[in-house]
Write a protein that binds this DNA or RNA. Structure first.
Length: 578
RNA sequence: GUCCCCGUAGCUCAGGUGGAUAGAGCGCGAGAUUCCUAAUCUCGAGGUCGCAGGUUCGAGUCCUGCCGGGGACGCCA
């Protein structure tokens, strides 16, 4: 609807002053008594035209006289305020009834390829709340982009190479021995575990699975390759891709691979239960050759140099505050080296746009990645990076500390089991993702008005209830009825208000998608639900005179479509009853 | 120390490229149900938008400084 106003104001300015208007804003006025939408173009034209804004606004308003889209166009203090006519609103609402969900869809993306990379948690432990937040925000963003015609690839980058994988293997080995009441005779294993090992309970569980599969054989120093076969033959109820890919090496490596198989399985299940799916699980390990090639290219371009036996990338040439190591003096690659190759890989895959959702601990990482992309002349706006801030969990009014070290951190799994996916998704979308979020587990569980997700779902359930009742009493299905002809019978202000709000979702969705602010959608849904609940409490549908009843049924049908679209996009269910 | 984010009602937070009299939920006070679900609704109280300057016709929004909170600053991942 904003487009319509924008278009009309544009041509008015062109017609009256024979000039192209500056970029102006179409917004909802603070007070809805002033109108449905307001335009600030008069302020922006004032200097140029050497007139005061009010005069300009009046000229524009005058030009619009007789336009049947609006019931009024007024100039107030320099704003031009538009109020949509009943005729126009009912016409749009009829289209909504005809088209259903499609009314809100628009092909902005035109098939453009966008990758959204999110979560990407290390496969060395269960997901925690912060990962869950990233999962929900990323998935919602992906849903929105898809809705608007982008071809979206959801990708999870698995850090399955590097030191943390070794640490996982060491930790499993340590716990395995412990399960036999033994201590390692190798001091490097003991030291490493004690200093940096993963202490979570899940490591013990994995160790027990190993014990189940190979018994004491690992204790007896059997060849890792034959241990591998024993694990594969044990028929665990999940794929063992990493274990299978083991082609010789230490038992620590084998255990790490098995551990990653187990953990990734858990991670996938957690995400699935949150309603989050991925198209691509990208393995860091698989980049092997590409890392070398990428570094070779950087070298040719002259951005690589050697110092203290390590290989450095001259990221300071492009705005980073210090240069970064890509290859350590012991010859191993840093995480950064993999990431250079990974982003280059993304670029070569031909995405028009790539969105990274990173945990806030990656903050300092942004400049170096941007620097590298510049070295490869990748356009600046190709990569968007958004930070997902930490989530603090509260129970019984107290913060529940999450500490991966001590192993007593709160997992996403516990919370999903505890409160279910709907409240989690909703709450994660009530704040901008780049600010910290406090999550009150007690409150979220409570099925009361304190919990906004139920408020919105309840609106949907109530409408469904009316439809149910109608079907029972009149033996007709409102879904199948063409009700738009009865819209004329809606005459009350709250009805027009609901219609207006329902139609506004279209602008809202578009803006939210383009500004990448999925959290605003929850606020819209609460507003719409509020209007509906208010209406519901003061107007009866069934029991009203037939003409009015059918009109109201039409109204509710449209509102329900809006609620469904909104809920679907944030991945929250729209229950028929509660 | 350097950099980034945040500071709006008692609490948790919206306020999307500056725009009109500052918004919601919770909490608090008062009320609403013979009728489609009261997980609801109505009314009320509650604010120097951290502080001080600046830019502007206009600042919660932009700039500078200060105060307070959080985070990032490894040849970790």
């Amino acid at each position: 609807m904003k487009d319509i106003v924008k278009e009309k104001v544009n041509s008015a300015v062109k017609e009256i002053w024979k000039k192209e208007p500056p970029p102006f804003k179409v917004d909802r006025p603070r007070d809805e008594k002033l109108g449905d939408l307001a335009v600030n173009v008069a302020f922006l034209l004032a200097k140029d035209l050497r007139k005061n804004p009010q005069e300009i606004a009046e000229a524009i308003a005058g030009y619009m006289k007789g336009d049947r889209t609006f019931s009024s166009v007024e100039a107030v203090k320099g704003f031009v305020n538009f109020r949509f006519s009943r005729e126009f609103l009912l016409g749009e609402f009829s289209r909504l009834l005809d088209l259903g969900e499609e009314y809100y869809r628009e092909d902005i993306g035109k098939g453009g390829k966008i990758q959204v990379e999110f979560v990407s948690a290390n496969p060395t432990g269960p997901l925690h709340l912060g990962h869950g937040r990233g999962a929900v925000v990323g998935d919602t963003l992906a849903r929105l982009l898809e809705f608007f015609g982008f071809k979206v690839v959801r990708e999870y980058y698995i850090n399955d190479a590097g030191r943390q994988v070794y640490l996982l293997g060491v930790s499993i080995l340590y716990r395995y021995l412990e399960a036999f009441g033994k201590e390692t005779t190798r001091p490097e294993i003991k030291d490493t575990f004690e200093r940096e090992g993963y202490r979570g309970e899940y490591v013990r569980e994995i160790a027990l699975m190993v014990k189940e599969a190979v018994g004491e054989d690992l204790l007896n120093g059997e060849d890792p390759l034959s241990l591998k076969e024993k694990i594969l033959n044990h028929s665990f109820p999940f794929p063992l891709e990493y274990t299978r890919s083991f082609e010789g090496g230490t038992e620590v490596d084998l255990l790490a691979r098995f551990g990653m198989d187990v953990i990734l399985e858990e991670i996938k299940r957690d995400l699935k239960d949150l309603g989050v799916g991925f198209d691509v699980w990208f393995s860091e390990m698989s980049l092997r050759g590409e890392v070398e090639k990428a570094l070779e290219e950087l070298k040719t371009k002259g951005y690589l140099y050697e110092k203290d036996g390590a290989l450095w990338v001259r990221t300071t040439d492009f705005g980073d505050d210090k240069d970064r190591v890509a290859v350590r003096s012991d010859g191993t690659y840093t995480y950064f080296a993999s990431d250079i190759a990974y982003h280059l890989n993304k670029f070569k895959r031909g995405f028009d746009r790539v969105i990274n959702l990173w945990g806030s601990d990656h903050f300092g990482y942004v400049p170096r990645i941007r620097a590298v992309l510049k070295m490869f002349s990748v356009p600046e706006n190709w990569l968007e990076i958004y930070m997902i801030q930490t989530v603090r969990l509260f129970r019984g009014g107290k913060e529940v500390k999450m500490s991966k070290r001590a192993g007593d951190f709160v997992t996403l799994r516990e919370l999903i089991d505890d409160v279910g996916p709907d409240p989690i998704r909703f709450v994660f979308l009530t704040k901008r993702s780049d600010t910290p979020l406090d999550f009150d587990a007690d409150l979220v569980k409570e099925k009361s008005s304190e919990n906004p997700v139920f408020y919105v779902q309840y609106a949907h359930a109530r409408i469904s209830g009316v439809f149910r009742e109608f079907r029972e009493r009149f033996r007709k299905d409102p879904e199948a009825m063409d009700l738009k002809g009865y819209l004329e019978n809606l005459v009350e202000d709250p009805e027009m208000g609901l219609i207006r709000k329902t139609l506004l979702l279209k602008d809202e969705l578009k803006e939210i998608t383009l500004s990448r602010d999925p959290h605003l959608l929850t606020y819209f849904l609460m507003d719409l639900s509020s209007l509906f609940h208010n209406y519901y409490n003061h107007h009866r549908v069934i029991g009203a005179p037939e003409e009015v009843m059918l009109g109201r049924l039409a109204l509710l049908k449209g509102v329900r479509t809006a609620l469904r679209v909104g809920l679907k996009l944030i991945g929250v269910s729209a229950p028929e009853r509660m």
